[in-house]
Design a protein around this nucleic acid. Sequence first.
DNA 1: CGTTAGCACTCTTTTAGATAGAGTGCTAGT
DNA 2: ACTAGCACTCTATCTAAAAGAGTGCTAACG
Lengths: 363, 363
Amino acid sequence: MDKLVVLMYVVKCKFGEKVEKNLDLNERSLHLLKMLVERYIQDGQPVGSRALSKNTAIKLSPATIRNVMADLEDLGLIHSPHTSAGRVPTVSGYRFFIDSLLKVKPLELKEVSQLQTEFNEAENTSDVVNRASKVLSEVTKMAGVVTLPRREVLCLRHIEFLPLSNTRVLVIFVTNEQEVHNRIIHTSKKFTEAELIQAANYLNSVYSGRSLASVRESVFNELQQHQQQVNQGMIDAVNMAQMAFKQPPEEDYVLSGETNLMGFNELSDMGQLKNLFDAFSQKQGVIHLLDQCLVADGVQIFIGEESGYQAFDQCSLVTSSYSINDETVGVLGVIGPTRMAYEKVIPFVDVTAKLLGSALNPK
Amino acid sequence: MDKLVVLMYVVKCKFGEKVEKNLDLNERSLHLLKMLVERYIQDGQPVGSRALSKNTAIKLSPATIRNVMADLEDLGLIHSPHTSAGRVPTVSGYRFFIDSLLKVKPLELKEVSQLQTEFNEAENTSDVVNRASKVLSEVTKMAGVVTLPRREVLCLRHIEFLPLSNTRVLVIFVTNEQEVHNRIIHTSKKFTEAELIQAANYLNSVYSGRSLASVRESVFNELQQHQQQVNQGMIDAVNMAQMAFKQPPEEDYVLSGETNLMGFNELSDMGQLKNLFDAFSQKQGVIHLLDQCLVADGVQIFIGEESGYQAFDQCSLVTSSYSINDETVGVLGVIGPTRMAYEKVIPFVDVTAKLLGSALNPK
DNA sequence: CGTTAGCACTCTTTTAGATAGAGTGCTAGT
DNA sequence: ACTAGCACTCTATCTAAAAGAGTGCTAACG
């Protein structure tokens, strides 16, 4: 194990203002809310005033607690399923809990190093990503998701062209030492095998070792400048490179442990569950959601409807972006019921993101 | 649309002997059984004697029908969930129904040609396979599965080596005109880039255009024969080829419409469903099951526990192998509840397999 | 002898009512 | 400001009863 990672939790605080505004939310109310949420996360049952009162840390009668709870309900932080049930946190309640009340405890060194070992043997990018996803799901017993690192920052190692039928050309390129990609382009004319080899040689000599993004840029500039250059072979090569790289990188993610979600009875409504799994297999909706986490640093959390994605209404998503060489290249996270052990999941997701980043870092 | 396909249903008949043995299974009983199964497949409710009696095609009193049903129950073909419910087909009942009673109706030409169009635009193998899987699930509203074609019969187009760190070498090879594969091998010594290029050139000149299976064989023979040959470069090349190809081809399949299975209430037990989906993501169990269908021609059916795979206990699997150039290379099928419309699914799976085969056929 | 009508019986499903339990809101008292 | 007490509401559980569906058996019929 080489690098240990500094833990830092940047949790977005949407409701920061609200704390100021509602002065009636005194120390005691907050503490009660915290107790209530923690209790609910533990048991999954609506928690009543009596239950809270029995809690050692609180020496108030149920009646008093009821008054406080009525206030919290007015503020929309908790909610009663029906008259004679206890209270349950609302989305706002969870939000407030996470942003202002939750004391996240960093992982122990031992746990971190154990996590680290999961990545040690991995050979290539997709292997690392798979392991990350698997670890996320296995540790949390929920679903783990990891987006593949953005291709932009990958480093071009080698490119090659093979002629297909007609004007189609198979482009194979290797990035990041050992990741093989391929795509098919349609050229303006039919090239011979020799021409293609020559073109590849040229591109390899000029662009090998540079990032895809910079290659794309250079290629574009070169086309602009040398529009009517003498060396047609070079133009052809650059042209083909542009076609190969201009296609938007297909975004994708790796999901593990989806089936864990079938165990939670808050997700046991078959219709909802079907929606969720449909979302998983269609992918684009989830990708869109994950992309939103790409911009922010640190851990980001979507609670229930906050994600704005119907299928995730009953779920929470705890994500963190991960970086290679200080450049953010992907997102990873955990998907589970809104009632999850945030205080454990948050630091875990954070650390895993850091570890994934350094595992992907070319030494 | 170029080729139309001859339909032929070779359905394995496990219970062929039983028909002979039980002489009491006269015409009438068989017809009644047929009615019962059809009715049950339609409604999903246990069917009673009265319901069958009302059926226009049968002019028997409920009492008589009850006697017959008692016989059928003794034979283990149908079964009563409890005293006052109707009867439901057992696995044996379904088996007998499918093997001996079912009149499968071929698809209409129109339907076949419409199916055909689904494959027309597909460019490469994985695209074709994906479409096949999607079609299977969308038409049947159940889950569709297609194994990737066995690599053995693929034709080697091009091979290339790239040096990695230490003695590791990245092998890229193209099969079947445009399918790109890659793997990493560990060589006995460190090769220079020039050596690797030379090795690739040699292999390309000798083996290009041959099937992977034959390449593997030749490579093996060559190593045996020329053990102490002068040309070390050639030995190295052949050696690397062997390492690249010896690894067993990773079998895989494409699954679509799994979520359709969440809609059936015979599969609505969350525990069972979880098992099923776990099986889908672990893959090997399903692959093993599908491999069993690779040997037989035509449509094969596993009903409920017949598959011998716990997770599929509540499901039936209707499969057919598919072939390229008369060589069987893969399996495709439909997964759904045992109560499915076999008379439609069977011909559909059959035709789809034929179409997939011809879509994959290099012209 | 095969078929049918009749009937008692069994089992599930539905409905209803009663009861217990949990928790609340309100009021009055400390 | 807090608490005790109490009436009230709603859910969950249990019981009993009734309805419905279907069977198995027996005896009668052509």
